[in-house]
Nucleic acid binder design. Structure first.
Length: 1002
RNA sequence: GCCGGAGUGGCGGAAUGGCAGACGCGGCGGAUUCAAAAUCCGCUGCCCGCAAGGGUGUGAGGGUUCGAGUCCCUCCUCCGGCACCA
């Protein structure tokens, strides 16, 4: 070991003494230096436009490279700023993007802001500051915070959903959907004019949209009603028919009404009867609302899940939300007082038509027209007051109340129907366990084979007839399983599937029923009675007709308002109605298309009222992945060529090749939280499919590969009774090695658990603080090292030290702490060279499979090896290293370069700094990923475990070249092994080359 | 209730059916220091043993296998989703 040069000791002494007063050596890697390096590279990337990505046709675009579109779910910029969960996904995508650039891809990696929505508006109501002001402020803060992480976004593509140049196109897409209908024959959306043309040419029956139910759609006529010859119809009727087909329509719907939020909500926004935002109770209320006919796409949304590389759990969730179920629709004729048929029938949906002989009563939802329109149906003696009372009670019950206690309630409606199979007259009840929105809002109740019907029948003493033979010893309860049909006339003896087929055929032949597929998915309620959202590009004329404004008039901007407080009310009014000067306008001022005005008989002077509802917060995120491809296009929502390139729709080649590209097309990697599994991800797929059908985009799906990062939780403490205790109310009375936690105030023992970060538990971490203390590179490494990206894992500030030590050690291996010069070895150590190849190989494959924690572990091993090699060779940086030009270095220039490149995706600032110190003036962002020599991954000899009867007894070195037989022989004759089996008879040997030898002897 | 996912040292975690606990934190001991920080070296699942060594060990119980953290069955716990959808 060489002696230290005298001046080293002296210098060390100096820095040591000054260290207490002024800090570490000038070039020691600590938070201060990290901060300087990071600021330097962040501004350099900005100035040089390092990550600005050209589009096809633009200067600098290289068409020879493959493309990689990697997207983060953009954040909702809240006033609270970034939390530690945001940078988790963003760091992961940044690592992949930096890696892909080095692997020779054109990488699209954009960022923006999902900025319309309720929270900003509620904050504005509290503070009196306009949501635009607070939102812009929050965006500025988010941008600052994100830039501080050194993410390689192409910031020139940034936009917010609140930008007029963005939501102009959101409104434009709304008009596209409004002017589209779904053609079931072609299984796709088409322009509404094509439907009208088919009516005019008499190539399509003039009937109301069969998919539009009577109580959601047009007037009082049921869906599918045939209306007559097109030429003979008046304008109003034609409108009604066409409107019933539109993918965006106005319907009188029983909706989820949240009085606290002052708005109606989509089904997807209601969780356990409460609003997703705020957790307020939700009520059912019939309201006229804008709806999207997403149900038309139910089957495709379900089917196309199979072409997506998404987590299975997410696909399952979407599948369940869509909820396909196959069964039958059956008509039960309504009887008059004499028990004769009236010619009217009650239609039900059932998945168990085979049990129809056991249908002993019927149940309709309290919102069902049969209950509502009392005079239309002949009723038996019944207490009308009780019926009205019950309906009122049921309708005013919040969903929370409905779900609490599944005690069945209900009353007899007075209506009787005939069971078409058994011929019995059976009563129709109403109960809120039947939902208006599913099927036909009415069921045939078969208590013997349905648990809910059983409970209801028991409570109200209705008859129960078993029609499926339960197994021996079955108790006094419903039997929903398999078995032979009984009490079912011509179905007797058949199993469930056979009976279903037979009864459907029987009903069909008598025109009393038909096979039917039903979906749980319901149409998407798209209007909100709020301020902070996109206005609809729609006006209403004096006859109450909705009419689109011209695409040239977009965007329809929000009016300035001072008072956007909701009026808590049972009779909800859209907030924008308060802006009378804005809402009341003329056809000319609103800029409607000439042809639309003419068709509606309006002149530019005609008074019209703007639609005063706004779009929900989801609207902006339904197509943002498309806008990033070409965010500054002012003529189209996205340029066609840019869209085809980045979304991978295929721009050339045969039809087959394009078809194939389209199947695989979409964002190459989309990363975000699992909480959007059925909300954003379903809505965005729907919009995308409509745009695809209309020929506006080239792929049928927006997101090809999806990944959910896990939740970052925090430690908290739990009492015996599972109640939680804040971290500052607990003390450790054990040792650091074996902690024992007690609640300070009471002295009761508590256990450490993980919980969501929350203000009340005092365990929220602010990323700004962490970066200030450790630097962004360390923060990035820490979050990626915590565990698998998809797993939920607890934040533990104490652990960050390990990553900051790793970077400091890496720095010290490469840089002289006194002079700041690189420390280079003259010749390469073969041990380090071998390790370097293995680590680069490992890091590359780990990045590909998003296993960043193990990639970092590999780099730590490399640095530890190099660092201790440095120690042995002559002392680490701090203790003596200021030879001229860093003579104690352990890495050659070439090795250090490769290390810097491998480190770059994870800790890009330090990597760039090293790269520059190594004499490069350009960024390493587009350098080629270092090559791995396969020969360096193999050893001549490897340690093999030797087991006797499965128990580990020895470890021997064996040549890698041996096959199983060779290894067996080698092991049995090995000096360390032979004594272990001496005198025993070897019965069997399992030899696995490179792993182990298991000897069965006795 | 139904459908997913997961249970590995004091903590975070690693492990194509093949040496359980890589790597990091924490802890213990040591070097350096007047002292500390920083840094470096060694040890660190648990139990027995002065030691050599032995036993035991991946939520519990069973099974398949030469061999199981990994595959199968039953159960327990935790997390997520759905939940009167006929």
């Amino acid at each position: 070991m060489p002696e230290k040069a005298p001046q080293d000791t002296a210098q060390h002494g100096d820095s040591s003494r000054t260290g207490t007063r002024e800090g570490a050596p000038a070039h020691r890697y600590n938070a201060k230096l990290a901060g300087e390096i990071e600021a330097k590279w962040q501004s350099r990337w900005d100035e040089r436009g390092t990550f600005v990505t050209p589009n096809p046709g633009q200067a600098g675009f290289d068409a020879k490279k493959p493309k990689f579109y990697c997207l983060d779910m953009f954040p909702y910029p809240s006033g609270a700023g970034l939390h530690v969960g945001h940078p988790e996904g963003y760091t992961a995508t940044d690592i992949i993007c930096r890696y892909k650039r080095m692997k020779g891809f054109n990488v699209l990696h954009p960022m923006g802001w999902d900025a319309f929505g309720l929270p900003a508006e509620q904050y504005a109501i509290q503070t009196g500051v306009h949501p635009a002001v607070t939102t812009r402020r929050a965006i500025d803060n988010f941008r600052r915070q994100l830039k501080r992480f050194g993410f390689s976004y192409d910031w020139t593509r940034e936009f917010g959903t609140i930008d007029e140049e963005y939501y102009r196109w959101t409104q434009w897409i709304f008009l596209k959907i409004y002017n589209a209908w779904y053609d079931p024959e072609q299984d796709r959306a088409r322009h509404i004019d094509e439907l009208i043309a088919e009516f005019e040419n008499d190539t399509r029956d003039v009937r109301l949209n069969p998919a539009a139910a009577e109580y959601t759609g047009a007037g009082d006529l049921p869906g599918g009603t045939r209306v007559g010859e097109w030429e003979t119809l008046d304008e109003e009727t034609r409108r009604m028919i066409v409107d019933s087909y539109r993918l965006a329509y106005v319907g009188m719907q029983t909706v989820n009404w949240c009085p606290k939020l002052g708005t109606a909500l989509a089904n997807e926004e209601v969780i356990d009867g409460r609003s997703e935002r705020g957790g307020f109770p939700v009520f059912r209320k019939p309201m006229r609302q804008w709806m999207f006919r997403i149900t038309a796409y139910a089957d495709r949304l379900l089917r196309d899940l199979s072409m997506l590389d998404w987590p299975e759990s997410t696909k399952t969730q979407q599948g369940e939300w869509i909820g396909k179920s196959e069964g039958a629709e059956i008509d039960f004729p309504i009887l008059d007082d004499e028990g004769e048929m009236t010619g009217v029938a009650l239609r039900v949906f059932t998945t168990r038509p085979d049990t129809i002989f056991g249908a002993t009563y019927m149940v309709v939802a309290p919102e069902h027209p049969l209950v509502d329109e009392t005079q239309e149906y002949p009723r038996r003696a019944t207490d009308e007051d009780a019926l009205r009372e019950y309906v009122r009670y049921a309708r005013n019950r919040s969903d929370v109340e409905r779900m609490e206690g599944k005690d069945k309630t209900g009353v007899f409606t007075g209506v009787m129907v005939r069971n078409p199979a058994s011929g019995e007259a059976i009563p129709v009840w109403t109960s809120d366990y039947v939902l208006i929105g599913y099927g036909t809002g009415a069921i045939m109740a078969v208590p013997a084979q349905d648990e809910r019907d059983w409970a209801f029948a028991k409570k109200f003493e209705l008859p129960i007839v078993r029609t499926v033979q339960p197994p021996e010893g079955w108790g006094d309860e419903a039997y929903t399983g398999e078995g032979p049909a009984i009490n079912s006339d011509f179905l007797n003896g058949l199993n469930v599937a056979e009976a279903k087929t037979k009864i459907i055929a029987w009903l069909q032949s008598r025109s009393q029923g038909t096979k039917r597929v039903n979906y749980r998915l319901r149409d998407w309620l798209f209007s909100r009675q709020r301020y902070w959202g996109e206005p609809f590009p729609i006006v209403w004329d004096e006859k109450g007709r909705h009419l689109p404004v011209s695409a040239d008039a977009l965007p329809v901007t929000l009016p300035e308002m001072a008072d956007y407080a909701p009026v808590e009310s049972e009779d909800p009014q859209p907030l924008l109605a308060k802006a009378e000067g804005w809402a009341r306008t003329t056809a000319g001022e609103a800029r409607m298309d000439e042809s639309v005005m003419r068709a509606a008989g309006l002149t530019p002077e005609s008074v019209v009222m703007r639609e005063t509802n706004t779009m929900p917060g989801w609207a902006g995120s339904c197509w943002y992945e498309l806008r990033y491809c070409d965010p500054r296009d002012s003529r189209r929502f996205v340029g066609r060529e840019a869209e085809r390139y980045w979304m991978g729709g295929g721009s050339s080649g045969s039809d087959d090749a394009r078809e194939d590209a389209a199947q695989r097309g979409g964002v190459d990697l989309y990363v975000g939280g699992a909480e959007h599994a059925v909300l954003h991800l379903l809505y965005a797929r729907f919009w995308h499919k409509v745009l695809f059908d209309l020929g506006e985009v080239s792929t049928p799906e927006p997101f090809h590969k999806l990944f959910h990062q896990g939740l970052i939780t925090s430690f908290a403490f739990q009492r015996e009774d599972k109640s939680l205790v804040a971290v500052d109310e607990v003390e450790n009375r054990g040792t650091d090695e074996k902690p024992a936690y007690f609640e300070t105030a009471t002295g009761t023992p508590v256990t450490q658990i993980t919980a969501k970060m929350s203000k009340s538990l005092k365990n929220v971490i602010n990323p700004d603080d962490v970066i200030a203390e450790f630097g962004a590179d360390t923060f990035r490494l820490y979050e990626m090292y915590m565990g698998p990206l998809e797993a939920s894992k607890p934040w533990n500030t104490r652990d960050i030290t390990g990553l900051s030590r790793f970077l400091a050690r890496a720095w010290r291996v490469c840089v002289d702490e006194e002079s700041g010069a690189v420390r280079l070895a003259e010749s390469a150590s073969s041990e380090i060279e071998k390790k370097l190849h293995r680590v680069i190989d490992r890091v590359g494959s780990d990045i590909e499979r998003l296993a960043f924690n193990t990639a970092i572990a590999a780099m730590i091993e490399l640095v530890n090896l190099a660092s201790s090699a440095g120690e042995k060779a002559g002392g680490a940086g701090s203790s003596g290293s200021s030879g001229p030009s860093g003579s104690w270095g352990v890495l050659t220039k070439d090795q250090m370069e490769r290390f810097a490149l491998a480190l770059a995706p994870f800790a890009p600032h330090m990597a760039e700094e090293l790269w520059e110190k190594l004499g490069h003036s350009a960024s390493l962002a587009y350098e080629a990923w270092p090559a791995v020599d396969p020969a360096m991954l193999r050893d001549d000899e490897v340690e093999v475990a030797v087991q006797i009867a499965g128990k580990l007894k020895a470890r021997i070195m064996a040549p890698t070249s041996l096959d199983a037989a060779g290894l067996e022989h080698y092991a049995l004759t090995h000096a360390d092994v032979a004594p272990l089996i001496a005198g025993k008879q070897v019965r069997k040997v399992i030899a696995v080359p490179g792993r182990l030898v298991n000897i069965i002897a006795g």
